[in-house]
Measured scan of single mutants.
Amino acid sequence: MSGIALSRLAQERKAWRKDHPFGFVAVPTKNPDGTMNLMNWECAIPGKKGTPWEGGLFKLRMLFKDDYPSSPPKCKFEPPLFHPNVYPSGTVCLSILEEDKDWRPAITIKQILLGIQELLNEPNIQDPAQAEAYTIYCQNRVEYEKRVRAQAKKFAPS
Results as ranks from 00 to 15, higher is better:
Leu60Ser: 06
Thr135Ile: 11
Val142Pro: 14
Leu60Asp: 03
Val148Trp: 03
Lys48Asp: 03
Pro105Ile: 07
Ile4Gly: 07
His20Lys: 04
Ala131Met: 06
Val92Pro: 08
Pro28Gly: 15
Lys30His: 09
Gly3Arg: 06
Glu118Phe: 15
Pro123Asn: 01
Pro88Trp: 06
Ala131Phe: 03
Ile109Met: 11
Ser70Pro: 05
Cys75Arg: 04
Val142Leu: 12
Pro79Cys: 13
Asn85Trp: 03
Cys138Val: 08
Phe155His: 09
Ile45His: 00
Ala5Thr: 09
Tyr68Ser: 04
Asp102Val: 08
Arg61Trp: 08
Trp16Pro: 01
Cys93Lys: 03
Arg17Val: 00
Pro52His: 14
Leu94Gly: 00
Asp66Glu: 12
Lys74Asn: 15
Arg8Asn: 09
Trp53Asp: 04
Ser71Asp: 15
Tyr87Leu: 03
Gln117Trp: 08
Ala106Thr: 13
Trp103Asp: 01
Ala129Ile: 02
Leu63Asp: 14
Lys76Gly: 13
Lys59Glu: 11
Lys59Gly: 08
Tyr137Gly: 03
Thr91Glu: 14
Lys101Ser: 13
Ser158Val: 11
Asp33Ile: 03
Asn140Gly: 03
Asp66Ile: 10
Gln117Asp: 07
Ser158Phe: 09
Thr108Leu: 15
Lys101Ala: 15
Ala5Glu: 11
Lys59Pro: 09
Tyr87Pro: 00
Pro80Ile: 07
Pro79His: 15
Lys30Thr: 07
Val148Ala: 09
Thr51Lys: 06
Thr135Phe: 11
Met39Pro: 06
Lys153Ser: 10
Pro80Arg: 11
Ile45Cys: 14
Leu81Phe: 07
Lys101Arg: 13
Gly50Pro: 01
Pro52Lys: 11
Pro123Gln: 00
Pro52Gln: 11
Asp19Cys: 03
Phe58Asn: 01
Cys43Lys: 02
Ile116Gly: 05
Asn85Leu: 00
Gly34Pro: 00
Gln117Pro: 08
Asn31Ile: 10
Asn121Glu: 12
Lys65Trp: 02
Pro79Glu: 14
Ser95Tyr: 06
Lys146Met: 14
Pro80Thr: 12
Pro52Val: 08
Pro84Thr: 10
Ile96Cys: 03
Ser71Lys: 12
Tyr68Asp: 00
Gln126Ile: 12
Gln111Trp: 14
Gly23Ser: 11
Tyr144His: 03
Ser158Trp: 11
Pro84Phe: 02
His83Trp: 03
Ala156Pro: 10
Phe77Ile: 04
Ala44Leu: 11
Cys75Asp: 04
Arg141Ser: 08
Ile4Glu: 12
Gly90Pro: 06
Pro157Cys: 10
Lys65Glu: 15
Leu97Ile: 15
Leu120Phe: 06
Lys154Thr: 11
Lys110Thr: 05
Ala44Asn: 08
Leu97Gln: 05
Pro32Ile: 13
Cys75Ile: 15
Lys146Glu: 13
Lys18Glu: 05
Gln111Met: 13
Gly56Asp: 02
Met62Leu: 08
Gly50Asp: 06
Ala156Ile: 08
Cys75Glu: 03
Gln11Asn: 09
Gly3Leu: 10
His20Trp: 01
Val92Met: 01
Pro32Ala: 13
Ile45Glu: 03
Leu60Pro: 02
Glu42Met: 07
Lys101Asp: 14
Gln126Pro: 04
Arg104Gly: 04
Ala10His: 05
Thr135Asn: 08
Trp41Asp: 00
Asn121Phe: 02
Trp41Gly: 01
Glu143Thr: 07
Thr29Val: 07
Gln117Tyr: 10
Val86Trp: 03
Ile136Ser: 12
Asp66Ser: 10
Glu145Phe: 09
Arg104Asp: 06
Gln126Val: 14
Pro28Leu: 07
Glu12Trp: 05
Ile109Asp: 03
Cys93Phe: 00
Asp66Pro: 12
Lys49Thr: 08
Glu12Pro: 02
Leu113Lys: 03
Trp103Lys: 01
Gln126Glu: 13
Glu98Ser: 15
Arg61Lys: 13
Tyr87Trp: 06
Asn37Val: 13
Ile96Thr: 15
His20Gln: 00
Val92Leu: 14
Leu113Arg: 01
Asn140Cys: 04
Phe82Ser: 01
Ala152Lys: 02
Gly47Val: 00
Ala156Asp: 15
Gly115Phe: 01
Gly47Arg: 01
Val25Pro: 04
Ala106Leu: 08
Lys48Tyr: 02
Ser7Met: 14
Asn121Arg: 11
Arg147Asn: 05
Asp66Asn: 10
Ala15Asn: 08
Gln11Ala: 15
Tyr134His: 05
Arg17His: 01
Ala5Phe: 09
Arg104Leu: 03
Ala5Gly: 14
Gly55Glu: 12
Glu42Gly: 11
Pro128Ile: 05
Tyr68Glu: 02
Ile96Phe: 04
Pro46Asp: 05
Arg141Leu: 10
Asp19Arg: 04
Arg61His: 10
Gln117Leu: 09
Tyr134Gln: 05
Asn85Thr: 00
Glu54Gly: 11
Ala15Gln: 14
Val142Met: 13
Ile136Cys: 09
Pro46Lys: 07
Arg104Thr: 08
Gly115His: 00
Lys154Cys: 00
Leu113Ile: 12
Ala131Gly: 13
Leu63Trp: 00
Asn37Gly: 12
Phe77Gln: 00
Glu99Thr: 05
Lys146Trp: 02
Pro72Ser: 10
Ser89His: 15
Ile125Pro: 07
Gln139Ala: 10
Trp53Phe: 06
Lys18Leu: 04
Tyr137Val: 00
Pro32Leu: 14
Cys93Glu: 06
Gly23Trp: 07
Tyr134Met: 09
Met39Glu: 14
Lys18Arg: 14
Asn124Leu: 00
Trp103Ser: 01
Ala44Tyr: 15
Glu98His: 15
Leu57Cys: 12
Ile112Lys: 08
Leu94Thr: 03
Leu94Ile: 05
Pro73Arg: 03
Ile109Gln: 05
Pro84Trp: 04
Asp102Phe: 08
Tyr87Ile: 08
Ala152Trp: 04
Ile107Trp: 01
Ser2Lys: 05
Gly23Val: 00
Phe64Lys: 03
Glu54Phe: 13
Ile125Ser: 09
Gly55His: 13
Pro46Ser: 07
Asp127Asn: 05
Phe82Asn: 01
Leu113Phe: 06
Gln151Val: 02
Gly56Gln: 04
Lys48Glu: 08
Gln117His: 13
Gly34Gln: 13
Ile107Tyr: 06
Thr91Leu: 14
His83Lys: 05
Ala10Asn: 14
Ser95Arg: 01
Ser70Arg: 09
Gln111Tyr: 15
Lys76Pro: 01
Lys65Ile: 14
Arg141Gly: 08
His83Leu: 03
Ile4Ser: 04
Phe64Thr: 04
Phe77Cys: 03
Thr91Trp: 14
Glu98Val: 08
Phe82Trp: 10
Leu63Pro: 01
Lys30Gln: 07
Asn31Gln: 10
Lys49Glu: 14
Asn40Thr: 09
